[in-house]
Design a protein around this nucleic acid. Structure first.
Length: 439
RNA sequence: CGGGGCAUGGCGCAGUCUGGUAGCGCACCUGGUUUGGGACCAGGGGGUCGCAAGUUCGAAUCUUGCUGCCCCGACCA
């Protein structure tokens, strides 16, 4: 992408409304624009990141056996009356009426709708297990939206719903999502710690929040250092096998959020130098809720014994839009964002320091073309801004690699290669630069 | 919803107390000089001062009402 043809409205000054670093950087880097309290437009740079995060989540859901669907944002109130949640949900749900005066709502979640879909088609236990997910915009009329897309009213959510014949089978489905989440966050270079959450209506140990550590996190978390070093399953993990061992490895060490923290237990179970107290951001939440919806909504299957039984369900959420902000909270410095490779909006920036100069133009164009051939998504800064402004902008948007082409280097047949995360800079030949960046 | 604050050009702000031609920096446009860490000179464009009503000869400024937004608290992916 040529920067001169891109839409990248970078702000030089900090917008006054942005308190936390991710919000500030997302606004300054031209990733998002606020349209209302807690409602944001995603600009090209932000959208690229959002899509990459989304895609990683999608790949890991698919790998774990979940199947993608896409449900609408607008739902009928009648569906929610069936589950009894229409009255319970309260003011957080945005209620609207269509022209016929029918009660509709902007979905804050999709348990009712997915259950309705399920019961319409699935009649036999032979079709289980089943896990359907979608990545769709949600609206929750939060009392106080804040922190940009970290806590917005409209937000993107990946929500998966599992259906099983028995509680035991549902536990296995839960474990698959548990492992899938570990892998998803690992791919984004995030240390996500599963922490036992307030249990749902059924209780037990089948509800976990995934918390990533970031110094600017919202809540305080406490854990055993050993949990940070546990190996995350690789991509060839067998989702058909029993995953309870992996889940157990991750749920055995002490890990709790402020709400669930018990200082006495923490000190009893974890030796002093293994105790970690840090800030955390919740990026995922999984839970098992049994027959809470299948029962009232009549989502039943016929079991092997010929008897109809309500299915056991679980739901599994990740907020990609919040994740984008969370990644920035975890990866930034005073100059801007330092994207992990997997989430970076571009792989490499090609910075032509002197557009209009024959030599730098030729080299820049050539390197830009070579990167494309190598399959790299490059941002080519071909604008005539001053060098300082270009460096500041590139550091702000945080592209992992920068190829800096100026008259001085070109004179010697070299370009400067800068790594945004490590800050390392090297003068390399053109070919070496390409192989360094394409590695 | 309770407490605090803000609203003046795209962004950041001054001006409001004490009513009298709407300003500054950045950004933008034109021309020129520049060009390895956010350049300089000259010229230029752009604002219903959040909205409404009121007071006044005269309102960004005073009064009343409303709206939007931000921060602190309870809630959440």
């Amino acid at each position: 992408m040529r920067l001169s043809r891109f839409f990248l409205p970078i702000l030089r000054e900090d917008p006054k409304e942005a308190e936390i670093v991710s919000h500030r950087l997302m606004l300054r880097a031209g990733m998002i624009r606020q349209e209302s309290a807690g409602i944001y437009a995603w600009l090209p740079l932000g959208l690229k990141v959002l899509r990459k995060v989304e895609q990683i989540i999608r790949e890991e859901q698919n790998r774990a056996g979940a199947i993608e669907v896409l449900m609408p944002t607008i739902q009928s109130a009648d569906l929610w009356r069936e589950s009894g949640r229409y009255d319970d949900y309260g003011k957080e749900m945005l209620r609207i009426a269509d022209r016929q005066g029918r009660d509709m709502l902007f979905g804050p979640t999709n348990e009712e709708m997915i259950t309705e879909i399920f019961r319409g088609y699935v009649k036999s236990y032979r079709d289980l297990p089943l896990n359907l997910y979608h990545i769709q915009w949600k609206f929750r009329d939060e009392i106080r939206p804040r922190f940009g897309v970290m806590r917005s009213r409209e937000f993107l959510m990946k929500d998966a719903y599992s259906f099983d014949l028995t509680a035991e089978a549902s536990r296995a489905a839960y474990h698959r999502m548990f492992v899938s989440y570990l892998r998803t966050f690992e791919r984004l270079d995030l240390k996500a710690i599963p922490m036992r959450a307030e249990s749902g209506p059924i209780g037990g140990d089948m509800s976990h929040e995934f918390i990533i550590l970031a110094s600017t996190g919202e809540s305080e978390v406490f854990c055993d250092k050993s949990i940070l070093d546990l190996p995350v399953p690789s991509e060839d993990v067998d989702y058909g096998s029993d995953l309870s061992g992996i889940v157990s490895d991750f749920t055995t060490p002490y890990a709790a959020t402020e709400e669930m923290h018990d200082q006495a237990e923490f000190e009893r179970r974890v030796v002093a130098d293994q105790r970690v107290t840090a800030r955390g951001i919740e990026v995922g939440h999984i839970f098992y809720f049994g027959t809470k919806y299948s029962e009232p909504m009549g989502a039943k299957v016929t079991g092997p014994d010929g008897v109809d039984v309500p299915v056991h369900m679980g739901s599994y959420g990740i907020g990609p839009s919040r994740l984008v902000a969370a990644i920035i909270e975890a990866y930034h410095d005073n100059d801007g964002i330092k994207w992990p490779d997997a989430a970076a909006p571009f792989d490499t920036a090609v910075v032509n320091l002197k557009p209009g100069d024959g030599a730098t133009d030729t080299v820049s164009e050539d390197l830009y073309a070579k990167l494309q051939i190598a399959g790299k998504d490059a941002l080519y800064d071909d604008t005539d801004a001053r060098a300082g402004a270009k460096f500041a902008a590139m550091d702000l948007i945080g592209v992992p690699w920068q190829l800096i082409i100026g008259p001085r280097g070109v004179k010697d047949g070299q370009v400067e290669v800068k790594n945004r995360r490590t800050g390392e800079r090297d003068m390399l030949s053109y070919d070496d630069a390409i192989s360094r960046v394409a590695a």
